[in-house]
Design a protein around this nucleic acid. Structure first.
Lengths: 155, 155
DNA sequence: CAGTAAGTTCAGTCAAGATTGAACTGATTG
DNA sequence: CAATCAGTTCAATCTTGACTGAACTTACTG
């Protein structure tokens, strides 16, 4: 690999981004970033710890977490006892779909708020009704969009 | 207000949610939550500090931030020198639109990653191409959705 | 102009959570 | 069985950033 430094810097940029945007721990973001540009695409824990200058401990914790979230795969090569990690195919659509789930919770939260008001249908409830209607709209539409994407992709 | 405690608990729930989902500071979330269910919908800094058991300092910092982001309005009642804060109308659509902006940045990040590879169009680039295509798709579609919402709303 | 009320700023404190490092388990190999 | 390697766990440390409280600015009011 010629441009190791550039790729590492890239992994770092990915990490910073995901930290801000999605609340993903820095080190987990580094792993994701590195797995996006490393060669070969499969890497074991020791390699990750070395190239990212991280402890085995945090690699272990974060890979477990990334597996749990479903962003990476753990594979083993027959005859080897090391575990290899790689970006899971379809990760991104799933990740977005998961983030979109929050929309449903917000719609629900708006409902709970309306239940607290004396006159939910009156002027007092306008703030929460706007919130509710918007989130309900997106709760309906976003899954359709993801569907559309998956169909376009298949062709 | 009869159910003060319930409304405060609600503000807290909103705060926790936004903290997880969007990286919004806890106290800013409390202010948003409270402004959603308080009566009247306008509240001044002193009232906020009192009801939320917070220091004037953090109220000042967080209201400034919320104003900057555009989630609330600052209004003044003629003849009074206090500032009143309220949820801005159209806040939610704007907030979503803003969060959707991140999608564009991700598409851009994917591009930068592809530029690092020796053979972006080959097998090596498959991971990043998937990321790129998905985000490009949503970068195109999401603004249309918001548009659609705004139109539906107007009618 | 003194007094008071509203709001801002900022240095210091505190808490949450990421990261490390060392001790551990378990599997493999000579 | 001793030695080594891969990986996990967890207590301790370190970092980041929210929050407070006190000193300050500004503006109104008698």
């Amino acid at each position: 690999m010629d441009n190791l430094q550039a790729r590492l810097a890239y992994a770092e940029r990915i990490a910073v981004f995901y930290e801000k945007a999605g609340g993903i721990p820095r080190m987990a973001g580094r792993i994701m970033g590195w797995l996006l540009v490393c060669d070969p695409p499969q890497q074991n824990a020791t390699e990750l710890a070395q190239v990212l200058s991280a402890s085995k401990g945090s690699i272990s914790t974060m890979t477990r977490w990334l597996l749990h979230i479903g962003l990476i795969n753990k594979t083993t090569i027959p005859g080897e006892r090391r575990d290899y990690f790689e970006i899971r195919e379809g990760t991104w659509a799933d990740l977005l779909a998961q983030q979109f789930q929050a929309v449903g919770s917000f719609r629900e939260l708006a409902n709970q708020g309306l239940a607290l008001l004396n006159d939910p249908k009156g002027h007092e409830g306008a703030r929460l009704r706007e919130m509710h209607d918007l989130y309900a709209f997106f709760e309906r539409e976003l899954p359709l969009l993801i569907e559309k994407w998956r169909n376009e992709r298949k062709e």
